[in-house]
């Protein structure tokens, strides 16, 4: 097995383990920390395919920003020692069976497919190249989604204000 394959499977294994821990942990703060490792693993995968820019963004935004935000909101809203309720065994069983069934089905179908390796020349993903694509308006340009995302963010901010605003009589 090539070295890159070994590295890949190690990273993938770590990601799977921490993702599982993140969703099964009953302490919410620990779940957030496990999530951090799963996200860092994704960044490592990006490094592996030589996409440094995306890897850096993944580290800064997700591992750095989002997880810290999640931890802050957990600390501000819940007690640190609080544990989630234990789910009923019946529910756990049904969920496990369904999840396993779905997993097997998905993996089986994916493994049956003969993926075609792209014969397009590898483009260099430099920052200037990404910038040109992001703001390009021809075929393969992403300026429209880029602008729509800004509307989405504006709407999300207004939505957050609506949820957080006090009652008129309180102020």
């Amino acid at each position: 097995m090539a070295t890159s394959a070994i590295i890949f499977y190690t990273i993938a294994g770590v990601m799977i383990i921490f993702s599982l821990l993140a969703v099964t942990s009953r302490r919410i703060l620990r779940a957030a920390v496990y999530l951090l490792f799963a996200l860092a693993g994704t960044a490592a995968l990006y490094f592996m395919i030589d996409y440094q820019f995306l890897a850096a963004v993944q580290l800064i935004v997700y591992a750095g920003g989002i997880v810290v935000l999640i931890i802050f909101s957990i600390l501000l809203t819940t007690h640190i020692n609080e544990k989630l309720e234990k789910p009923a065994p019946g529910k756990v069983f049904i969920t496990a069976v369904l999840t396993l069934g779905g997993f097997v089905l998905t993996v089986y179908t994916l493994s049956q497919h003969n993926f075609i390796v792209s014969d397009l020349p590898q483009t260099e993903a430099t920052v200037s190249h990404i910038g040109e694509k992001l703001l390009g308006y021809g075929e393969g340009g992403y300026v429209l989604p880029f602008e729509v995302i800004s509307i989405l963010l504006l709407a999300a901010m207004i939505g957050a204000i609506v949820i957080a605003k006090r009652k008129a009589s309180d102020s």
């Binding site: 992403y142 429209l144 989604p145 729509v148 995302i149 509307i151 989405l152 709407a155 999300a156 207004i158 939505g159 957050a160 609506v162 949820i163």
Partner: peptide
């Protein structure tokens, strides 16, 4: 494009989720 479709879908739902809790 699938990306535009997905963004449109999110932009449809997220503001309404905030409005659903309008009477917070």
């Amino acid at each position: 494009h699938f990306l535009m479709f997905y963004l449109g879908l999110e932009l449809t739902t997220i503001p309404i989720a905030a409005l659903a809790s309008y009477e917070q």
